[in-house]
Simulated assay, not measured.
Amino acid sequence: MSSLAPADRLRVVVVDDHHLFRAGVRAELGEACDVVGEAATVAEAAAVIADARPDVVLLDVHLPDGGGVAVLHGLAAAAAPPAVLALSVSDAAEDVVPMIRAGALGYVTKTINTDDLIAAIRQVAAGDAYFSPRLAAFVLQAFSAPPTAVADEDPLETLTPREREVLHHLARGYAYKSIAHRLGIGTRTVESHVRAVLRKLQLTSRHEVSHWAATRGLLEDDPGDAADPDAGSA
């Protein structure tokens, strides 16, 4: 395993909702970096990062309560935010591109070996972008290609039928677990659909979704809707 000289050891926070994965990363980086904090949710990440002041945050894409993009949005307001390296099982464009647009300086998959992960951490800490080789091409394409969207296209038309169902409930204040129960799908699947809705509509929060839907007359009374006892929590 590669190792850094003590004076060069970087301070790292690992944000992932799987304890065993965080423990594995800590063990792998132990000789090269100081893992100064761990978090499993968006809220925990905000507190740990503010307290630990790391050089680099290793950030999973699929976190409860908004995902890695929500953590990045929170960091955007910081005076001196740390470099963020996304570390995920997903190499799908719909996960990669929003993370980079939200401020991640690099993106690697969890199949990366330890030496390459250490190299990636060093590179983003130095202010340079780093991507797994197979991701680099479509990231470059996504950020260099001219916009292809038609100006008059209705954003609602870009949503799949399932995404529209999720939008319908999300805009009315239903929590993720309530939406999952109503639609007969898993909470993680709801989170994935919500990320897609936010990305396609170019919105950043539940409040913006509700406002967007209301201004388009999509929140007319629906007899099938009732107050959600879990509203306000995802």
Rank of each mutant, 00 (worst) to 15 (best):
3 S>A: 14
3 S>D: 14
4 L>M: 14
5 A>F: 11
6 P>N: 03
6 P>E: 05
6 P>G: 08
7 A>P: 11
11 R>V: 00
14 V>E: 08
17 D>Y: 06
21 F>C: 09
21 F>W: 05
21 F>R: 06
22 R>S: 05
22 R>A: 07
24 G>K: 05
24 G>V: 08
32 A>T: 10
33 C>Y: 01
41 T>P: 02
42 V>L: 03
43 A>D: 08
45 A>M: 05
46 A>S: 10
47 A>D: 14
47 A>Q: 11
50 A>F: 00
50 A>K: 05
51 D>V: 02
59 L>N: 00
60 D>C: 06
62 H>N: 15
65 D>H: 11
67 G>W: 02
68 G>V: 01
69 V>N: 06
70 A>M: 04
70 A>F: 08
71 V>F: 09
71 V>W: 08
72 L>I: 11
79 A>E: 13
89 V>H: 02
90 S>G: 08
92 A>N: 13
94 E>V: 11
95 D>K: 08
96 V>R: 04
100 I>C: 02
104 A>M: 04
107 Y>R: 06
118 I>P: 09
131 F>Y: 15
133 P>A: 12
133 P>T: 11
137 A>Y: 11
137 A>N: 12
139 V>N: 03
141 Q>I: 09
142 A>C: 09
143 F>N: 10
150 V>Y: 11
151 A>Q: 12
152 D>K: 09
155 P>S: 09
161 P>C: 03
162 R>I: 13
162 R>C: 10
164 R>M: 11
165 E>K: 06
166 V>Q: 04
168 H>K: 07
168 H>M: 05
169 H>C: 02
173 G>V: 04
173 G>M: 03
175 A>L: 03
177 K>I: 13
178 S>I: 00
182 R>C: 07
185 I>H: 07
186 G>L: 04
188 R>L: 14
192 S>T: 11
196 A>M: 09
203 L>Q: 04
208 E>N: 00
210 S>N: 02
219 L>G: 06
226 A>K: 13
227 A>C: 09
230 D>Q: 11
230 D>C: 12
232 G>M: 13
234 A>L: 13
